[in-house]
Simulated assay, not measured.
Amino acid sequence: MQEVATGRKAESLCAEFLEKHNLTIICKNYRIDGGEVDIIARDGIYWVFCEVKYRQHESFAAVLEQIQPQQCRRVRQTARYYLLSNNIDEHTAAIRFDVIAIVGESKKIEWFKDAF
């Protein structure tokens, strides 16, 4: 349960961070069978699907390396489902997949736009 609480706290920090950078948070923890998107936001014309990663003692590069291709596929599949279920044409919509990493006790945030 500690990991879930830590994850939720990291997601809340990321949502606040994105709002400070003028993104509009649409949804947090969007889930379907077989997938989840941590944060769905709007950045101008873009639909932004964010994966949040928190690590206690790792570098930002290590966080990105831990995102496996199958996880990217699950996030993309979940994003596709969200768009279709909200009558948004995935072929014409501007879509971006970002990663936001929080590392260490200082909770330093690094934002990787269009990460995958």
Rank of each mutant, 00 (worst) to 15 (best):
R73V: 14
H57S: 12
K53P: 06
N87V: 05
P69R: 12
A94C: 04
N86T: 05
A61G: 13
T92M: 03
V52I: 12
A101W: 00
V52S: 01
N86Q: 05
T78A: 04
L84M: 10
S85F: 05
I102F: 05
F97E: 01
I67M: 09
T78C: 03
D98L: 00
A101Q: 04
Q56A: 15
R74H: 02
Q66L: 14
L84H: 10
A61D: 11
Y82L: 08
D98R: 00
T92V: 03
L83C: 03
C50Q: 02
V99K: 04
S59V: 15
D98S: 06
R73G: 11
Q70E: 08
R96D: 01
D98T: 04
R76Q: 09
R55T: 13
R73C: 11
F60H: 06
K53R: 12
S106A: 14
A62M: 14
A61Q: 14
P69T: 14
C50K: 02
A93Y: 07
E58M: 15
K107C: 08
L84G: 07
R80T: 12
Q56I: 07
E51F: 06
E90M: 05
E51C: 07
Q56C: 14
V63N: 01
D98N: 00
A94N: 03
H57M: 09
A93H: 01
R74Y: 06
A101T: 08
E90D: 01
E90K: 09
T92L: 01
R80H: 10
K53C: 05
R80W: 04
L64V: 03
L64G: 05
E51G: 01
R80P: 02
V99W: 02
Y54F: 12
I100T: 08
Q71C: 06
Q66F: 09
Q70G: 08
Q56L: 13
